Computed example of a mutant assay.
Amino acid sequence: MNALLNIIWLLFGGIWLALGYFAAGILCCVLIVTIPFGIASFRIGVYALWPFGQTVISRGGALGAFSTIGNVIWLLVAGIWIAIGHVLTAIPMFVSIIGIPLGIANLKLIPVSLAPLGKVIVPSSSYLPMVR
């Protein structure tokens, strides 16, 4: 089922979304100082290309001061605008029954697009939250 949803996602906007993230990643890598943002943009681009069957988790030791400062800068410069774009493109997806999972996937991209540093994308099957 994930493969079918990913193919539909890819055809109805996932490719353009991923290309946008990849273009932003290239631009960030060209501007040497923003290479961490470029790497994060590539990571989000891969996730935007094939979102079903994957999940975002926080990397345990990566939430240091530099990561926090970088996430605040990212949020102010790009994160808010990207999140607004995801919400605005998710709304028309919810109009049809077939588009509902696509809209949910689009909304699922918002947390990682707001604060991408210190996050890692893993297959959903390999991420089992610990039960206490």
Rank of each mutant, 00 (worst) to 15 (best):
85 G>D: 08
40 A>T: 12
113 S>H: 06
85 G>M: 04
35 I>C: 05
81 W>G: 01
104 I>Q: 02
82 I>A: 09
102 L>V: 10
52 F>T: 10
119 K>A: 01
72 V>C: 12
64 G>R: 10
34 T>C: 14
80 I>S: 03
105 A>C: 05
47 Y>N: 00
96 S>C: 08
101 P>A: 08
70 G>H: 13
100 I>M: 03
52 F>M: 09
36 P>D: 09
74 W>G: 06
38 G>F: 12
27 L>R: 13
109 L>P: 04
35 I>Q: 08
80 I>G: 01
84 I>V: 13
49 L>Q: 11
51 P>Q: 11
118 G>S: 07
94 F>C: 04
92 P>G: 04
28 C>V: 07
117 L>N: 10
82 I>R: 14
49 L>W: 15
22 F>D: 11
56 V>W: 00
83 A>I: 09
54 Q>L: 07
115 A>E: 04
47 Y>T: 00
78 A>F: 14
30 V>P: 03
113 S>F: 09
107 L>E: 01
38 G>H: 13
46 V>N: 07
82 I>M: 14
90 A>E: 00
49 L>I: 10
44 I>C: 14
75 L>K: 04
79 G>M: 05
101 P>I: 11
74 W>C: 09
35 I>M: 05
62 A>Q: 10
31 L>I: 15
38 G>Q: 12
97 I>L: 10
20 G>I: 11
119 K>L: 03
49 L>F: 15
114 L>T: 03
54 Q>F: 10
100 I>A: 01
63 L>I: 08
108 K>T: 01
92 P>Q: 03
40 A>Y: 10
78 A>G: 07
79 G>N: 07
60 G>A: 13
78 A>V: 14
86 H>R: 06
92 P>N: 04
25 G>M: 12
41 S>M: 12
58 S>K: 03
78 A>Q: 13
68 T>H: 13
106 N>Y: 02
77 V>A: 15
113 S>Q: 08
89 T>A: 07
31 L>K: 09
110 I>F: 02
38 G>K: 06
37 F>D: 15
105 A>V: 01
43 R>G: 05
36 P>G: 12
28 C>E: 08
73 I>W: 14
32 I>G: 05
92 P>H: 05
103 G>N: 04
102 L>T: 08
73 I>F: 15
44 I>R: 09
41 S>R: 08
114 L>G: 01
25 G>K: 10
71 N>Y: 11
70 G>W: 13
89 T>P: 03
68 T>L: 15
120 V>P: 00
51 P>F: 06
118 G>W: 05
109 L>V: 03
84 I>R: 02
83 A>R: 03
91 I>F: 04
87 V>F: 14
72 V>N: 07
38 G>L: 12
94 F>N: 05
105 A>R: 06
119 K>N: 02
50 W>D: 03
48 A>E: 08
77 V>L: 15
120 V>A: 06
115 A>Y: 07
32 I>M: 08
53 G>W: 02
96 S>M: 04
71 N>V: 12
91 I>H: 00
88 L>D: 00
49 L>G: 07
67 S>C: 15
68 T>E: 14
37 F>K: 12
87 V>W: 08
44 I>E: 07
95 V>L: 11
69 I>V: 15
93 M>R: 06
45 G>Y: 12
22 F>I: 14
40 A>D: 12
93 M>I: 00
82 I>E: 13
30 V>Y: 08
78 A>R: 14
83 A>E: 03
91 I>Q: 02
95 V>F: 05
35 I>L: 08
